[in-house]
């Protein structure tokens, strides 16, 4: 579904701050694969995700989604394929627009927008149904400005928006990092349900090793712009946190007593 071939991204090239954020990285996601990505600060997790999303162009390599070469496409041109949830709950929704208006925008993700009404009566019924699945009581607040809702509610809505129109690829960028633990757990559970229900091909960055192990059917670990560990199938199911730490120490050559490198 997603094929990343030898992509490289260098920030501030030719300056003293030059940083090779992602270094000839290749990754292939089969349809329905749910991959969790872990790694320390500056490992290149977000860079990988942004490269796939098209936040900026890569400096080398090729990215294809479902057989379509998207390397030359900007973020909004890749939108037909990608559903996305950001780390910052404020980024995923339009605060001054109504809840139903936000959903209507999401339902038309990647479609040509014309002169039809921006929202139809039948859609509202559908939105109500979908909102009920969140279990947050939002189905009765279709005409509430999203800016009046809490960060957790907004993140749940963003998640719903990303999957309202089935994406080829779902990108989750530490999407629970800015939430309190209870809300984070709730949003993670919702994510997991939506992904398994829709059999969505997913790339999820997390800084929480337990979540990375618990969720998804494949785990990759990044370090210095490369993938240093790729675990899937039965092996992933039986993976423990300690094992993961040991493997990291072994591969990176860093003797790390704590998991601070991974968690930061």
């Amino acid at each position: 579904m997603l094929r990343v071939e030898e992509i490289t991204k260098i920030f501030n090239p030719g300056t003293i701050n030059e940083k090779v954020a992602v270094d000839k990285l290749s990754l292939h996601l089969a349809p329905g694969e749910f991959v969790t990505v872990i790694g320390g600060n500056g490992a290149g997790k977000s860079t990988l995700l942004n490269a796939v999303a098209g936040t900026w162009p890569v400096d080398g390599g090729r990215i294809t989604i479902d057989g379509n070469d998207v390397t030359a496409l900007a973020d909004f041109q890749r939108a037909p394929y990608i559903g996305r949830v950001f780390q910052d709950p404020m980024l995923g929704t339009a605060p001054d627009m109504w809840l139903e208006e936000n959903l209507a925008l999401a339902l038309r993700r990647g479609q040509k927008r014309g002169i039809k009404w921006g929202i139809s009566k039948e859609e509202r019924v559908f939105y109500r149904e979908r909102l009920e699945t969140l279990g947050l009581g939002l189905e009765d607040r279709l005409s509430t400005k999203v800016g009046l809702l809490s960060g957790g509610q907004r993140q749940a809505i963003t998640l719903l928006m990303a999957t309202l129109k089935q994406p080829k690829l779902l990108l989750l960028d530490e999407h629970t990092a800015a939430l309190d633990p209870a809300t984070a757990e709730k949003v993670l559970e919702l994510s997991d349900n939506m992904i398994s229900e829709g059999n969505l091909t997913t790339l999820m960055i997390t800084h929480n090793m337990k979540d990375a192990i618990r969720l998804g059917n494949r785990l990759i670990m990044m370090n210095q712009g490369k993938i240093i560990l790729d675990i899937s199938g039965e092996e992933k199911k039986h993976l423990t946190k300690q094992e993961l730490l040991d493997r990291f120490a072994e591969i990176s050559g860093v003797q790390e007593e704590t998991d601070s490198v991974l968690l930061s």
Binding site: A53, A74, D75, F76, Q77, A79, P80, I82, R84, F86, L91, G92, T93, A94, P95, D96, M97, E101, A104, L105, A106, R108, R109, G110, Q111, R113, G114, I115, K116, W117, G118, I119, M161
Partner: peptide, 26 residues
């Protein structure tokens, strides 16, 4: 302001990042 283009137009002014992620050429 009520049609699809108009909604995309309002969204652009309200949240640029979201608009682009939903395929709107801001």
């Amino acid at each position: 302001l009520g049609i699809e283009i108009g909604c995309a137009f309002r969204a652009t002014g309200n949240n640029d990042v979201m608009s682009r992620s939903l395929g709107i050429n801001t």
